[in-house]
């Protein structure tokens, strides 16, 4: 939005000189020309696909007869009433993963920003390093780590941790794989860097003198954190949670590989509808419902978090 208003604003008036007119005239359109690639990109890769999907979602037909727009909005309701459990599950899993990411990511980002010293760059590289491998391979690695006969599950079993998670319904039997816990862990792992990076940028910008000032005013470390550090890092928290929650809610790879039949998320449903059942309208409608739901949740969240800046 900002770019648009800036672009529309008249160029600053030169104090005098009508002889400067030619360059000004050329200059007037420069911002638009510069915007052109971006706008074309948005049209081709965002607006057109959206229109196409929106159209698909109100079509009816079959592959053999072709699909026609019939304004059949009932698809939305049918899709939602059929698959609301998967929607709900996606939200829960994504929220769980986001909270875990925040709990794990905040201390780490804090450490990197304030305490890492000369190790800072190394730790940053380690945070980003997993991206050098494919998403799929990273997720599959967890199947080895959490394997039924692997050390992790043995330890959890002997500590009776799994009894607790079984009771909570997060795991089933003596295993972690193919349970909700595994899916949430996979999501957490895969999206953790998206949490850490914005948190780090936010924390790193905090002026160290503010901490000193807080100390001078007799604030304990915890109070300093609560009153100074954390509020100042809010933009990072908000953008970190968004960057984690939004993709996690639409993810289907983790559920596919680490989950079982009762952990299927809405992404899995959309994928199945689109590719296997070839019910394009339902798939498109589900995508739109997901988008609307996330948009609504994000809007409420940003309003309530009370921060305007993201990072």
């Amino acid at each position: 939005m900002t770019t648009l208003t800036e672009a529309e604003a008249p160029p600053p008036l030169a104090p005098t000189a009508p002889e400067q007119k030619p360059p000004r005239k050329r200059g007037r359109f420069t911002p638009y020309w510069l915007l052109l690639p971006g706008i074309l990109w948005l049209i081709v890769f965002f607006a057109l696909p959206m229109i196409y999907q929106a159209s698909t979602s109100v079509q009816q037909g079959s592959l053999e007869q072709g699909y026609k727009v019939t304004w059949h909005f009932a698809t939305y309701w049918d899709a939602f009433s059929e698959y609301w459990p998967q929607f709900l599950r996606s939200v829960f899993y994504a929220a769980g993963a986001t909270v875990l990411c925040l709990l794990l990511g905040y201390p780490l980002a804090y450490l990197i920003a304030f305490r890492a010293g000369r190790w800072r760059n190394l730790i940053m590289v380690l945070v980003i390093a997993p991206f050098f491998t494919s998403f799929l391979i990273r997720t599959l690695a967890w199947k080895t780590i959490l394997a039924d006969n692997g050390p992790v599950v043995h330890v959890l079993n002997s500590l009776h941790v799994l009894d607790v998670t079984n009771w909570l319904g997060w795991t089933a039997g003596d295993r972690v794989l193919a349970t909700p816990l595994a899916v949430v862990c996979g999501l957490t792992y895969n999206f953790l860097p998206f949490m850490i990076l914005p948190l780090y940028t936010s924390l790193e910008r905090i002026d160290g003198r503010l901490h000193e000032a807080a100390g001078d005013l007799y604030a304990r470390p915890w109070t300093t954190f609560r009153k100074v550090t954390f509020p100042l890092s809010m933009p990072g928290v908000v953008s970190g949670t968004l960057l984690t929650f939004i993709p996690a809610a639409g993810d289907y790879v983790n559920s596919e590989l680490l989950g079982s039949t009762d952990t299927r998320m809405i992404g899995n449903v959309i994928q199945t509808q689109f590719l296997r059942i070839l019910d394009y309208p339902t798939a498109a409608a589900l995508s739109f419902i997901l988008m609307a739901a996330i948009l609504a949740m994000v809007t409420i969240y940003i309003r309530r978090s009370g921060t305007e800046d993201l990072v």
Partner: peptide, 14 residues
């Protein structure tokens, strides 16, 4: 995943 993201990123403005 990216295209799903892309689809879910914006608003229903279109």
């Amino acid at each position: 995943r990216r295209s799903l993201l892309r689809a879910s990123a914006g608003g229903a403005l279109a």
